[in-house]
Amino acid sequence: MADTPAVSVNHLTKVFKGTLVKGAFRAVQDLSLEVKAGEVYGLIGPNGSGKSTTMKVILGLLKPTQGSTSIFGVPSTEVASRHSVGFLPENPYFYKHLTGRETLHFYGSLCGMRGERLKARTDEMLAITGLEDAATRRVGGYSKGMLQRLGLAQALIHEPRLLVLDEPTAGVDPAGSRKIRDLIIEFRARGITVLVTSHLLEQMQEVCDRVGIMAHGRMVREGRLEDLIAVENQTEMVLENASPALLTKINALIQAEGGDTKLVRSGRPRTTLERLFIEATNESKKP
């Protein structure tokens, strides 16, 4: 059981049939990948590289032209494979005349949940995604970030073992985006496998264990994040309260070492703009 990959994609090719005016379009070409149970896998690539198509095939929304996909060993073509997966599409919309709570009830009932269990689970999901206050408001009045969090809540309502997130942070403000990334990290801690696509690389870097880079429908790179981005022959060192004298000493040591060793860069590390934004907006909240 532990060996069964959460997602496996075998030699997947997807060709969209052409029309009279437009020729056929090959969206994915002989793609293979595996997401192990419990890891966060990031599928990244530019727009139109075939990420979303791959996800839709995994979820059974599209039929593969060639090859196959499965979720925890169950072929995606079977409806049963959807028991263990929750999906958050890019920019999700829900029935805007339902309230947040009704929306979660709706998706829970679709998964066969009912009664106390459904009610408890709905409350739990509202709490986790921070939508308790908005639970009785109609979804039509939700902000983009709230919709995204509601999307996460509905994806998790039936306690799936795998979460598939399509561009979860696209179009969401930094605070909302931070919250979503924190949730992803929390899911991993609880043993939920996450397959996430994004073109916001920096954000992916923070949450993914492994990434695959797609371009033109093919996998061009795949591996553990550290392995992929580590610069093998460099070392980073960040000091606090270092005196100028100490810095001069270190410099002297490096020069004394000789050979290939050299100082590439030194200076003050910068906080990220994102961190600054979050700190500033949080400060303004405090009276």
Partner: peptide, 26 residues
Amino acid sequence: MSDAPTSPNTEAQTRVRFSPRRVWTL
């Protein structure tokens, strides 16, 4: 949230059948 995903495996293996309750929900 429960500590580990508890979605039972057996459920995933069985075929999903037509369900009047689900139709009613929709």
